[in-house]
């Protein structure tokens, strides 16, 4: 009970911080909107065939939803850099508050933000012909939440280990960002590429999510890709959360 209360308190703290810097909210939302507006038209004439706007979005939007989930996971990492520098992390660690609560509070805020962003993208997409399949999207929401929490916990721990060094953290975050996104097949499905690329993709958790996202968004809940994605994400999320909590517990700053 106490831990839930603490999670709520630390959720509230981070949510206030985010809402008082709304510029970041717009910055986070503008990237996927730009992708949709400027990248989707390229897909319509892919491989010699011409797709309708709706069909192109059906192919492209699910990957963007996954991209938003992954991208919003970097946020808590960056804000932890500043919290470490300002002594906030140290102050929280001296309180009796549960270490898991200290970790997960901000992460849940970014998860909710991700849900809202993805919701906005779905609404915008639907206006331009994206086909909405509620059941599939509901299950996809769960999968995206798992991905977001995993990513956020990973970057939180990485940030703590960087001990307030923003350059070190930014180098890791940026260095991972592009290969993970490309190998995840977020922008274009890897099935368009050679076999070796698809093989490499299997090492990328995002690949499973992006693949499952496309079938789930099309309303297909029984595809193997769906349970495979959960099979990868559920244990991965658990392991990363345990690891990140341990880092927060033990880190020497």
């Amino acid at each position: 009970m106490r831990t839930f209360e603490e999670i709520g308190l630390l959720f509230g703290r981070y949510a206030r911080q985010v809402l008082r810097n709304p510029i970041w909210l717009f910055a986070s939302l503008i990237t996927p909107i730009l992708y949709l507006a400027l990248f989707t038209p390229l897909l319509r004439h892919l491989g010699g065939q011409t797709l309708s706007a709706g069909a192109a979005l059906d192919l492209f939007l699910p990957g963007i939803l996954a991209l938003v989930a992954f991208g919003s996971g970097v946020g808590p990492g960056f804000s932890l850099i500043f919290d470490v520098k300002a002594g906030v992390v140290e102050r929280l660690r001296v309180t009796p508050a549960n270490r898991f609560a200290i970790l997960i509070g901000p992460i849940l805020v970014t998860m909710v933000m991700m849900m809202i962003f993805d919701g906005i993208l779905l609404v915008v997409g639907a206006l331009f012909g994206f086909h909405i399949h509620p059941a599939g999207l509901g299950l996809l929401g769960v999968l995206l939440a798992l991905l977001e929490v995993t990513t956020a916990a990973f970057f939180s721990a990485t940030s703590l280990r960087a001990k307030g060094d923003i350059n070190g953290f930014a180098a890791i975050a940026n260095g991972l960002n592009l290969p993970v996104l490309l190998l995840g097949g977020v922008l274009l499905p890897l099935s368009l590429g050679p076999v070796w690329l698809q093989d490499l993709g299997h090492a990328d958790p995002l690949y499973y999510v992006a693949s499952a996202a496309r079938v789930l968004a099309s309303g297909n809940l029984s595809s193997n890709l769906v349970w495979q994605a959960f099979l990868v994400l559920v244990p991965l999320c658990a392991v990363v959360l345990v690891w990140a909590t341990r880092v927060l517990w033990q880190i020497i700053m």
Binding site: R13, R16, R20, G87, V88, E90, R91, T95
Partner: peptide
Amino acid sequence: SQLGGSDEVLTARENLHLQARLYG
């Protein structure tokens, strides 16, 4: 600590209130 540790974006009252709540 030497660094202090208050939340810059929040007010003193909000900082104090949260801290008290974290101590139960």
